[in-house]
Design a protein around this nucleic acid. Structure first.
Length: 452
RNA sequence: GAGACAGUAGCUCAGUAGGUAGAGCAACGGACUUUUAAUCCGUGGGUCCCGGGUUCGAAUCCCGGCUGUCUCACCA
């Protein structure tokens, strides 16, 4: 349609008024709808009539939702517009929108009043669209591989499946102390015992700990369990799952990343696999030290000098893990770190070649742990012993050590097939997809102290 | 829990020798039938985060508190 011309077809539109340019007997409005598409309304006295035009000038504010019905016209400047013959107020805005040019940048307001952030900052909406698409891609991938989505309790009498402090709550009718779950793991394994062979759950877990750019007290996790699989197979699976999600959401397996010099992060599989002992030896070699020549005393001294936490129980395994924890944040990855010590992996099966290690891996990307997986421990006798070892650590003062779950042991005693299990932090994965440096940027409503 | 930084109009921000609190957008009144950060003329708008202190006088200096961000600690 050439500039300055129009048609006689009547069209109806609705949306929020984002801008008003008043020019006497002619007013231009920008109307925006959920698709973020903008349509200009060319409101002239001639088409609207005296009364409707006067009401428009009298009542209309930026932020109002209106409906309009009129003909299509292209203005002299070439903007495709609706020339309304009627308009109606659909919802009045009593408070003004954030300023249109600079938008809303106050971080606290952006989090507390996310709706304003979404209105004022279009890229924020895009972040959450990507989040939704990532989870949809994940579900579609899992479903196509024969996995069944399940839901397990979030209220646990004994919080288990992870090393963390829980939130406490109480059920009145049963007069029962309960905890918000710290992980769905032990319930999902009960379902494996019950005969489901491929299951997953995507939902919230809760951990009563500090808040940071990587931690929110409630966070979303994917947990996947596959009977007759082991951690090697779960590593392959993790590569396929994550690269599928990244490819689907971003169109590429190379994502923009401001945290690394090249500006982009390549997630093309396969990803390197390295045992924790190999990685620790590398970390120490980079500092001119030889892991294999160092005594236990020297290693502990190194942890202390580097400002790390010395484990409450000193063993080769806990020392190894403590040194790894000193430097794991430097792993850009993606990289799989495998074969974790048995002492810090109470739910993982012992390594078939080395009983001091477990068949476990974690995936590191940008210094953050993105996934944690293992061949599940399905030996009820060993599992009991591991729980008892955790109780000892707990008595030594480790509040986060696992608790003994007799009901879960009972399930294992009925027989659980060999199983591979995998957990992926969805929020952290979504951070990766959005080049977000804080978990708060991928949560609609991150936890903040309430305004009094 | 510790440290650093920040908080001024609805929004984005200025504002030091310590001396009556400012701009743009938004709002309100007016002009304008081709604007799109419209333009032009005019008006109103403040618990300068809160509470103390120093001072003749505090947005500004000092102390305490609140909230947030970052870093660390805790934490996968």
């Amino acid at each position: 349609m050439p500039a300055g011309e129009g048609t006689d077809d009547m069209i109806a539109v609705a949306g929020r008024v984002f801008s008003k340019r008043d020019s006497g007997k002619l007013t231009f409005l920008d109307l925006v709808d959920g698709s973020a598409a903008k349509i200009q309304l060319f409101c002239e006295l001639r088409s609207l009539g005296e009364e409707a035009f006067a009401r428009l000038k009298e009542w209309l504010d930026i932020g109002d939702f209106i409906g309009a019905c009129g003909t299509v016209r292209r203005t002299k400047r070439g903007e495709l517009s609706i020339c309304p013959h009627k308009w109606v107020m659909l919802a009045k805005a009593l408070r003004p929108l954030p300023e249109k040019w600079h938008g809303l940048s106050d971080v606290e307001t952006r989090y507390r009043q996310r709706y304003l952030d979404l209105i004022a900052n279009p890229h924020v909406k895009e972040t959450f669209v990507k989040r939704s698409r990532a989870i949809a891609a994940m579900r579609s991938f899992l479903n196509s591989e024969g996995f069944l989505e399940v839901e397990t309790p979030m209220l646990h009498a004994i919080p288990g499946g992870a090393a963390a402090r829980p939130f406490k709550t109480h059920h009145n009718a049963l007069d029962l102390d309960l905890h918000l779950r710290i992980s769905p793991e032990l319930y999902l394994k009960r379902l494996i015992v019950g005969g489901f062979e491929r299951i997953y759950e995507i939902n919230r877990s809760f951990r009563n700990e500090g808040i940071s750019t990587r931690h929110n007290p409630e966070f979303t996790m994917l947990e996947v369990y596959q009977a007759y699989a082991d951690y090697q197979l779960m590593m392959d699976f993790t590569e396929r799952l994550i690269s599928h999600v990244v490819q689907t959401v971003c169109g590429l397996v190379v994502v923009p990343c401001s945290q690394i010099a090249s500006g982009e992060l390549d997630l093309t599989p396969p990803w390197p696999r390295r045992t924790m002992a190999e990685q620790v030896a590398r970390f120490l070699a980079e500092r001119g030290l030889d892991y294999h020549q160092m005594s236990e005393v020297e290693l502990v001294a190194h942890i202390r000098e580097a400002g790390g936490a010395v484990p409450v129980e000193i063993t080769p395994g806990t020392i190894l893990a403590a040194i790894f924890d000193l430097y794991d944040f430097t792993l850009i990855g993606p990289i799989f770190i495998t074969d974790f010590p048995v002492e810090i992996s109470p739910l993982a099966k012992r390594h078939h070649m080395d009983p001091g290690k477990t068949e476990r891996f974690e995936l590191f990307v940008l210094g953050r742990e993105l996934a944690n997986a293992f061949s599940e421990l399905n030996d009820p006798v060993d599992q009991r012993a591991r729980f008892e070892a955790q109780l000892r650590v707990r008595e030594l003062g480790d509040e986060e050590a696992h608790q003994l779950d007799e009901d879960f042991l009972c399930a294992l005693e009925h027989g659980m097939p060999p199983t591979g299990g995998l957990g992926i932090g969805i929020d952290r994965l979504v951070m990766l997809l959005n080049n977000a440096e804080s978990i708060r940027d991928v949560l609609f409503f991150p936890l903040l102290r309430p305004r009094s």
